[in-house]
Nucleic acid binder design. Structure first.
Length: 155
DNA sequence: GCCAACGTTGGC
DNA sequence: GCCAACGTTGGC
């Protein structure tokens, strides 16, 4: 059964435009360093799942496009790279701590900004909007997915 | 740059 | 296993 996710990316690192410009519009989702987010990727995601592509840590945070999960899991190579900000000295290739999946961008949308999300009663209980929520990957209910994609795609 | 909120680490 | 100290996230 298809599930839905919201995945945060800093547009300075990889914006929806960057993802769309990549080969096959597909990017490896590197840099997840939180166990709960990792476990979502490892245990719950399936190829084909829907993704809300969210821009974070930027002047206008919000949902910027639609994507889909495009691969299984594999070790995130940045954890082994001492030059990477995501380097994890406690991880080894024998027992990698951190995983990634490929994400394929499908469409850039208008920006559905954080203030607008917060002001939308239908979305009030999104995990993203919970007080203190910082997870970079959060599940999205089918109802929220339908509502948001309808807002963004019309029809 | 600030800071609230949360996660991780490590001594005990 | 507790919990204080520290680090990180991310909106503002």
């Amino acid at each position: 059964m298809t599930a839905y996710w919201l995945m945060k990316s800093e547009p300075d690192e990889c914006s929806i435009d960057d993802a769309l410009a990549a080969p096959q519009a597909t990017v490896p989702w590197t840099g997840v360093r939180n166990y709960q987010a990792r476990n979502f990727m490892r245990d719950a995601m399936q190829p084909g799942d829907g993704v809300l592509f969210y821009h974070s840590s930027c002047p206008q945070p919000g949902i910027a496009g639609l994507a889909r999960v495009a691969s299984g899991t594999r070790p995130d190579p940045t954890q082994f790279d001492p030059a990477s900000p995501y380097f994890d000295p406690k991880s080894t290739p024998d027992a990698p701590r951190w995983l990634l999946r490929d994400v394929q961008a499908l469409k850039k949308t208008r920006l559905l900004g954080l203030p607008e999300l917060r002001a939308t009663p239908e979305l009030a209980d999104m995990v993203l909007l919970r007080r203190g929520s910082r997870l970079s990957i959060t599940p999205v209910s089918e109802a929220h997915w339908r509502f948001i994609t309808q807002q963004l795609l019309g029809g």
